[in-house]
Nucleic acid binder design. Structure first.
Lengths: 186, 186, 186, 186
DNA sequence: GATGAATGAGTCTTCATTCAT
DNA sequence: AATGAATGAAGACTCATTCAT
């Protein structure tokens, strides 16, 4: 009984499970069972569980990056863009059952030896930071002030994500949205 | 070779390891080895690994609570108290090698079945939130406005902790400190 | 269903299997099944398969060493002792179904990283070499000549063991016995 | 990217790896990677790993046989031929990093079911034995005495090979060479 | 003649927990 | 109160082999 496209099925399944329960709490066996693949098929496509995690984070990053770019390049002023971002975040948190940021969550459990994962975290976080800085810069010509505001919004976004996950309540996103809209005023 | 205070040695050892590497990444074998206890002795004091985790979080919460209370009841105005809190956070993050919040970190890997752990997270986070609200209230008689400011500071504190851990850099604490001091102005 | 003395049962079982089929061809599963133990019980007593192998070689060495000592210290002249040694070897080869020397056999498949195993091989072989030298010295006061004869007998013993195993025939032991008796004449 | 002579590349690669690390320690994945072939191509040329091993032993045997024949048919007396053989053995052991006899090494790990491999071992060993008998016969017309001497030299050769591999020292070859030269005197 | 994807059974090892003493 | 031995389930990973194209 040969099943094609094992590679994609594995990545998709692992993505769901990693996101929902955390990298460390999901075993290879569970992934291959749910993806209906043989264990050796898994290792044909991904040299290790860690490599699979990297592939997953990579795929998440691509989606996230496209999202950020579409906002930056989209219509409307910075305020509405920023507000829209938090609207999206709210939907995302609810839809993902309050699981928060895949990168932060993975970083908590990936040991210091996982340099590949750590690099991806840094890259993703940097992109987000730059996104908020860029948004702020669209309202304020002063690069320095814009950067400062962007960094603050980045932190309040991160806090909202973290605490929504912790408390299983959505209010942190609401608070963050309001705060962000105020922080972007110059 | 009788070792007294096995209970405390276990708790202390587990605390160090859980904090440094994360609840899911530390096995009880490692804990009892480092605490120089027998495995059965461990289970005499703590019915399960999860129970030990709860005891650890409880002990952390007590220290944290005392810290927050001493700030609230201490000398000085709200600004200096708030600023001092972030100074302490900075020291803590550096000294703990950027491991971040034990509660958030544990929440990421503790499954949905761990209600005891989840409850502790809620309690701890609520205490922090109230702390920031209280601090804001010391500067602003308007309860509603103070609460809103407190919540925002809470989120930016959380974001700073999360991202300092992710990026292994201290700047988020600096940014959060500045932002908090501004958010508390009315 | 608790079974005591798992440690000994494991060592005994592993000894039989390692000897009969070779270290690399016997898996942990087979050992614990035949020893009727749980897998974790195995790892409580032996940190690794390699460590178990070392324990086995150690136990073999002890028996071998006692055997050699009893010959050296026993009654009779060197000729009869030497001849008796090869008689014992003949019995051993037949009884063990021509599996040859545990040390040589293990050395073939234990990678270069197994320093513990390699050390045991060196030690065992050195003991054998000294045994033959000592036997020769009992017939010849000239240390140098005795050593040379002992080394030659050691090699012919080794060759007999190797080729008896390869050919599944006993004649190499017979030939070696005759040759040894001649080599020991001065 | 067509690669001709896949069959030969596989055989050559497998030969190197089998010899250096042992039949049981080398997987076909490693072989096909190093030989830059596809897995299915491998099974097109060799029905199994065991068959590949037989092909390898066959190729070794051919070289060995030519070597023995060239010695037998070569110039010089038996003494110098015998001495030369051990000179060659010395070079071989050093150059192959003390890996010893491919046949003996394979015999240790090839299960009883591998009749093809076992047959090759018998054949190769018999050729060697006959070689030494023939050499002895060149010095002694008495067939019986020559055979006995040949067998003894065969065993001391085998012991030298085995122990050089075990001890990672070359002295057994030296000792064996001297002993052989003495054993061939009548 | 050649290939990459798929496979089930196996490898060694660690997990949190419980037992009898 | 303390202990060392025992356990089943699971962990990540590799094996030689076969399939459809």
């Amino acid at each position: 009984m040969k099943k094609p496209n094992a590679r994609e099925r594995i990545l998709e399944t692992a993505g769901k499970l990693f996101h929902k329960r955390g990298y460390s709490e999901v075993g290879i066996n569970e992934i291959i069972n749910e993806a209906e693949t043989a264990k050796a098929s898994f290792y044909q496509h991904y040299p290790s569980k860690e490599a699979l995690c990297e592939a997953w984070l990579q795929s998440v990053h691509e989606k996230s990056d496209n999202h950020l770019k579409s906002i930056i390049e989209g219509e409307g002023d910075a305020d509405s863009k920023l507000s829209g971002y938090f609207d999206d975040l709210r939907s995302y948190m609810i839809q993902s059952e309050f699981r928060g940021c895949p990168y932060s969550n993975t970083g908590v459990v990936s040991g210091n030896s996982c340099t590949g994962i750590q690099e991806q975290i840094l890259e993703h976080k940097d992109c987000l930071r730059c996104f908020f800085r860029e948004l702020a810069f669209q309202k304020c010509d002063d690069r320095e002030k814009a950067d400062e505001a962007g960094d603050r919004i980045f932190l309040i976004y991160s806090g909202a994500t973290t605490e929504t996950q912790n408390l299983k309540e959505i209010w942190p996103v609401d608070i963050a949205q309001q705060a962000a809209l105020q922080l972007i005023q110059f």
